[in-house]
Simulated assay, not measured.
Amino acid sequence: MSGVTRRQEQVLDFIAGELRAGKRTPTYDEICAHLGLKSRSSAHYLVAFLIEAGRLRKVGTRELQLVGGAEDHLRAVLEALSRTSGSSLPAVRRAQEFLEGRPMPTFHVIPYAGAA
């Protein structure tokens, strides 16, 4: 994950795991306990940064929502493929280039000759 520290990534992974398991957003105390943080203000700072960075979104007064689903999903798929022979496929290489910020090639749609 680019743009976040290792600790911020750990917080995001913990929150994401709880939400994906169908649980509620963890409290600052639960984040502290899970990561071994000593103060709730540290957990608050880490969560606030993730909100500011656009990785989490506040919903209501207490709940959080993950942001960036499609890109994160693509990264996870590419990571899984990198452990197999699928990483050599041209489509995989193009997707990795897209995530690195390189422009995607343009495709032109040619109408079917029989179409009216």
Rank of each mutant, 00 (worst) to 15 (best):
M1E: 08
S2Q: 04
V4F: 01
T5V: 07
T5W: 09
E9S: 07
D13A: 15
I15G: 12
I15C: 11
A16Q: 06
E18F: 00
L19N: 06
R20A: 02
R20W: 03
G22M: 05
R24C: 07
D29C: 03
E30C: 05
E30M: 10
A33Y: 00
G36C: 05
K38G: 01
R40N: 05
R40W: 04
R40M: 04
H44C: 03
F49S: 08
F49W: 09
F49H: 11
L50Q: 11
I51H: 05
I51P: 01
E52Q: 15
E52R: 15
E52S: 14
E52M: 14
A53K: 15
L56M: 10
L56C: 08
R57I: 03
R57Y: 08
R57M: 10
K58F: 00
K58W: 05
V59Q: 14
V59D: 13
T61M: 09
T61R: 14
R62W: 15
D72V: 08
D72I: 05
V77G: 07
L78I: 10
A80F: 06
L81S: 03
S82F: 02
S82M: 03
S85C: 04
S88K: 09
L89I: 13
L89C: 10
R93D: 02
R94N: 00
A95Q: 05
Q96A: 06
E97Q: 14
E97H: 13
L99F: 03
R102S: 11
R102Y: 15
P103L: 02
P103V: 04
P103H: 01
M104N: 09
M104K: 09
T106P: 01
F107R: 14
H108N: 06
V109T: 11
P111K: 12
Y112L: 14
A116M: 12
A116W: 08
